[in-house]
Design a protein around this nucleic acid. Sequence first.
DNA 1: GAAAACACTTTGTATTGCAAAGTGAACGGA
DNA 2: TCCGTTCACTTTGCAATACAAAGTGTTTTC
Lengths: 119, 119
Amino acid sequence: MNAASYQQLDRVIHERGRLAIMSLLAATTELPFTGIRDALEMTDGNVTTHLRTLQEAGYLAVTKSFQNGRPHTTAALTVTGRKAFRHHVDLLARIVERARSGPSLEPGVMSGSRLRPQT
Amino acid sequence: MNAASYQQLDRVIHERGRLAIMSLLAATTELPFTGIRDALEMTDGNVTTHLRTLQEAGYLAVTKSFQNGRPHTTAALTVTGRKAFRHHVDLLARIVERARSGPSLEPGVMSGSRLRPQT
DNA sequence: GAAAACACTTTGTATTGCAAAGTGAACGGA
DNA sequence: TCCGTTCACTTTGCAATACAAAGTGTTTTC
């Protein structure tokens, strides 16, 4: 694990709002649209788009139905989603842990060894 | 601490690339431009813009000089930056911890108590 | 029966992450 | 001494997208 492993941070999950949704769903089993919106104090539009993004990534199972004449949407993590989230969280934990260890290296040791990303 | 505390996640710090830079600088004292770029395998342009963003937020002290006829840029966390990063990391740690605890609540408990963000 | 509430979705915009291209100085070979 | 290359960045262009305001359709309330 080198410092550049941050590249592995899944952008779909990492975004603030979606990290919150994934986090929330990871702690429960299934939640309604309104539950997510209220728990996270998110706007409706925000929830809709994030749910769609997460669903399209295969991380969420979203079910839409009508109950007493009103739309009812629920979301739950898929197995893939749970795995991806766990992986993300592990990465974050490692980054955080390393950061917490505090200053240790001398300044300047990182120079040299030029290595551009392939274009 | 409620679930909506994700709102406190500092967007300047939270972005992947910048989280990596902050993380890297938190573990050392000061690094040159090229050190950051190489350690994180980031493109030059990316490093420049992220450094600027972090500097404008007051999180980084960036010094630019010429050494043997070449520009030499270094970056280090400011006290504010170190504090903000620590706070961010603490928040992440809490989110991560709660997520790690696994399913516990019943589905449906989060409904009701509508509370829109002020517009 | 008009108006408000509810559960969403769509739209518009303003931001911004990213890499390709650009800049300018120094160095290396022919 | 010219020409190309390397180095250390900065600027530019664009595609993606986070966000909230406005919109939709139903249902309840007064």
